[in-house]
Amino acid sequence: MIDFYNTWLPYIYLYVGGGIFFLAGMILIRRTKAIDMRLKRDRFWWKALIFGYFYFAVIHAFLIIAALYL
């Protein structure tokens, strides 16, 4: 079995490290009103952005589990 250092640690590093940049971006676009939540179109984009982060996180998690246990 491959150790945590080479399985889940890269995953955590990627999504926590990348997540900090992502979160900073999300906060910034809200604070600056670059995304206007009064508009239906922009509300859609807000949801799409959040979806994208978890979409990739789930894909990577699934692939790690598949590699280790399938």
Binding site: G18, F21, G25, I29, W45, L49, H60
Partner: peptide, 13 residues
């Protein structure tokens, strides 16, 4: 598969 983190900055900035 690691390009999403900067998408908010790009799409709305």
């Amino acid at each position: 598969i690691n390009d999403w983190f900067f998408v908010p900055f790009f799409l709305f900035g």
